[in-house]
Every structure is written in C-alpha cells, then in structure tokens.
Design a binder for these strands. Sequence first.
DNA 1: TGAAACAGTACCGTTTTAGTCCTAATATTA
DNA 2: TAATATTAGGACTAAAACGGTACTGTTTCA
Lengths: 154, 154
Amino acid sequence: MSFFSRKMDYALLVLSHLGKNQQGSSAREISTRYAISRPFVANILKTLCHHGFLESHRGVHGGYVLKRKPESVSLAEVMNAIDEPFSLMECSTETDTLRCSIKPFCTIHTGMAEVHEKIKGILQSVTLGEILSPESKTGGRFLGLELVSSDQVE
Amino acid sequence: MSFFSRKMDYALLVLSHLGKNQQGSSAREISTRYAISRPFVANILKTLCHHGFLESHRGVHGGYVLKRKPESVSLAEVMNAIDEPFSLMECSTETDTLRCSIKPFCTIHTGMAEVHEKIKGILQSVTLGEILSPESKTGGRFLGLELVSSDQVE
DNA sequence: TGAAACAGTACCGTTTTAGTCCTAATATTA
DNA sequence: TAATATTAGGACTAAAACGGTACTGTTTCA
C-alpha cells in the first residue's frame, strides 16, 4: 500500500492539471487525458470543489477552474480534503492519545510524536506550486528551520 | 487510516520494549504487558526474528532478545520487514514508474518524487535508539542539511 | 426544449488487515 | 525420560477499507 491513496494521487494530478491549464477543464477532458474513469474523476473534482480548491461551472461549456494560487495549496490540505488528516500511528492525534490505554508506560510515544511532526511538517511545507515546478524549491528553509545557506525562500 | 499499520505500531513497541529490557522477554510477557493478543504479538515477533532484528530461544525460559543495537535500526528497515517498503504513490518505485501509462505527460512525477525522497529520508534517519530516548537527537543536522540554529531539533 | 455538464448519494466487489487456530519443534527441569 | 513452557510455521477467517460504478437530479447553454 502506498502512503497516498489513489484518490489522493488523482486529486494532485487534477489540481496540477488545472494549475497549468488556467482556463479550466471539464471532467470528461481530464478523464480522457489521464485515462481515469469519468465517474471517478468527477467524484474527486466534486470533493475538491466542495473544499474550495476549485470553482465549478455547469452547463454545456462548464468545467472546473483552480480557485486558489498553486503556491498556497499544501499537500496537507489536499490530504485533509480527500482522505483524512495525516496520522502516523493510531495514537498520533490528541483524541486518540487520550484513549490509548498503554500510554502511561508506552516507551515510544514521545519519540513517535516527533516523527509524526517531522512528516507533517513536510506535508505542510510542500505546495502545489512546488510540485508543478520542482526546480523552484524550498530554498534555504526546510521544515521551518533556518539553514546555513541563505538562498531566498521559495 | 494511519500511515503505519497496527502491526508496524506493535513492532516498534516490541522492539523498544526489548531495547529497554536487554535480558529479553517472552511473547506472553509482552502480550500481557501491552494487552495485545498473544498469537498476534507472537506473529510479529516471529517476523522480526525472521528478519534478523531479534534472536529467539525456545524452551521453558525462552523468549526473544534484541539482536542489533537500537541505534542501528531505522524505521525504514522495520517497515520493510513488517509491511513493505515505503512508497508515497503508486508510481513511486522505479518498477512502478516504468509501467505508469501517463508518465510521459504527468505533471507531478518529478515533484512528487522529491517529496517521496524527503519522507523516505526521515524514515531512514530515525532509529530505534532515538525513539527510545528522544532527547538524544540528530543534533544540529537534519536530513543532511546543516542548520543555523543550534537548538535541539525537536 | 434538449443536450452537456456538474451534484449527491447509495451501492457493490475486491483487497487488505487484524487477528485466530492448530500442529510441530525445541529446550528446560524434575 | 516425561512433562511443560515456549517458539516456529502456516493456514484460515471476519471485518473493514478502498476503488470504482450507477443512478437520479439540477443547472446552463444553444
């Protein structure tokens, strides 16, 4: 199993497709372009629209348009919309932690919480913009930590 | 769904338990300690043993002992043994990439490959030793990048 | 008015996961 | 040597998640 669900894969594909084609696309166009079944891609588009990533237009020449700037859309946000918020382990979120019966003597809780934060940091810091043009990188910052190299941010 | 399967969660728990108790433990001890069903924890112990993380001793006072130094065991290795190698997306590994039909015009392949490497880097760099004692960290280095601030990474 | 497109929801089949069970092998101890 | 405690190995099952489909309705445009 992959980390990202297939739905998430396609959502990113769709978002970047619309990020490149700023005049928008219909579900049909996208489904034929990438050979994804139409109802399936329509489902994904709907969800993305519902969460405010896209703008939909009905009618004969309708379709979807990216509503937000690619640079402002993080992987973490897309994940929250499509699947559910990132969680490293069963007990990673606060509510889960509360009902974890072994927490009092759990030898790995603290350590794993740190790993959770590291990965979450990556998902929050990587944006659709970076995915579209990988060469324009985080440049100088990584996970919110200042680096020796003083290249400009993004 | 969590990033780690429950099997993986328990595997880490088991490994760190044995990392702390260097005289070893039987499957029964561990299962009662953490309230995991005995056959299930036995399954996990078996797998870990089979992959060389543990040493098993049969008989009345048998049980399992951690065979490797905690500092040498990375999360990525445990994951490879328990589930399967980390993969961000369906097309993240080289063989998958080869049979990805849309790769020629995929707008996210390169970008996502970088994200894949970032997360893989974390899984490879975090060891069982760090999970056991989170304060003794990578100290000043993170993913091979030198940091300006000398505060603990946390 | 009809066709093209989105909206919403319910549903199904397959795969994966979590967990169990059973039998055999091995080591200890009395 | 016999009883017992433990691991070894593998087959098996139930339940949940995932991927994907189907259907029905609504809006827009020509």
